[in-house]
């Protein structure tokens, strides 16, 4: 698998949308309950343009839940999350926060990419069709334009030969790379990664991490929930440790991994490092 020189991936989609805002994600005092279970107990996080943030923590810490709140796949009961300067999932009406219209939420989501642990590729479409589906259906761009962009993206992730292949015929690593290309096709200003390599066989983790590193080098804003410490050390600007619904510690990866201040961080890291 060959990756070209930096900037190739984003060049394939015509580079990032220009926006004045420097702060991409601003989450303030986010609370969430699942029934009576209080899973997020006041999470505050700011992510700037071009930042790569890695979220770590034990299972049940709420890191995946929080990630899914950022593109409103999960509702929050308290607090606010702003993406690209706009409140997501809700709007103010008569001074109160009400759930936003579906159309508006969908519009905001189209600017946030997401890559799932189980890939979630559309099985009834080929790799190329998976990639061009949203640009055509949501953005309304022409089939030719979409195909051209899709082919470039596939080439950039090293899967040019799999244009007409169905997901079931691809390996896990190949599927995840197509999933990343699919997210990129919408030219998002931010991509969320929910444990992107956890469901992969070890020998395929590398090819996916390579693509993610490439993206990071090209300046994509990324929030990644992952246990891949090597990846974090290499490209992450910040590592954030969550436990029992709140952020307990954050810092640069070297600082956090080498000299964790909190005891829970130490305990967690000792198990995975």
């Amino acid at each position: 698998m060959t990756l070209h020189t930096p900037h190739d991936l984003l060049e394939a989609v015509g580079n990032l949308p220009e926006s004045g805002d420097d702060v991409i994600v601003d989450a303030t005092d986010v609370h969430k309950w699942f029934g009576r279970l209080h899973v997020l107990k006041g999470v505050n996080l700011t992510v700037r343009r071009r930042e790569v943030v890695v979220l770590i923590g034990p299972s049940g810490s709420g890191k995946t839940t929080f990630l899914r709140c950022i593109n409103h796949l999960e509702r929050i009961q308290q607090g606010e999350i702003c993406v690209n300067g706009h409140l997501i999932g809700y709007r103010t009406e008569n001074g109160k926060l009400v759930e936003d219209r579906e159309r508006e939420i969908a519009r905001q989501r189209s600017e946030i990419g997401m890559v799932f642990q189980r890939f979630n590729l559309f099985p009834h479409m080929t790799a190329l069709e998976n990639i061009i589906e949203a640009p055509i259906q949501v953005r309304g761009i022409s089939m030719d334009e979409a195909r051209e962009m899709g082919l470039k993206l596939l080439e950039r992730v090293g899967l040019a030969a799999k244009v007409n292949t169905y997901p079931q015929q691809l390996s896990g690593g190949q599927q995840q790379r197509v999933a990343i290309a699919r997210a990129l096709a919408m030219r998002p200003s931010l991509i969320l990664f929910d444990e992107p390599t956890s469901a992969l066989d070890p020998e395929m983790i590398g090819e996916v991490l390579d693509v993610m590193k490439e993206l990071a080098h090209e300046g994509m804003t990324m929030i990644v929930v992952s246990h891949e410490m090597g990846f974090a050390r290499e490209v992450a600007d910040r590592a954030v440790m969550m436990d029992e619904g709140i952020i307990i510690e954050e810092g640069t990866p070297e600082a956090l991994f080498s000299h964790p201040r909190e005891e829970r961080t130490q305990a967690f890291l000792s198990k995975i490092l």
Binding site: N71, L73, E102, R103, A106, R107, R109, S110, E111, I112, G113, M114, F116, R118, N120, L121, F122, E133, A134, Q137, V138, R182, A183, M186
Partner: peptide, 15 residues
């Protein structure tokens, strides 16, 4: 798989 609907939504598709 509900992941299908989630993936579609995350790409900006309405329900």
């Amino acid at each position: 798989d509900p992941g299908q609907m989630e993936a579609a939504k995350s790409l900006g598709m309405t329900y």
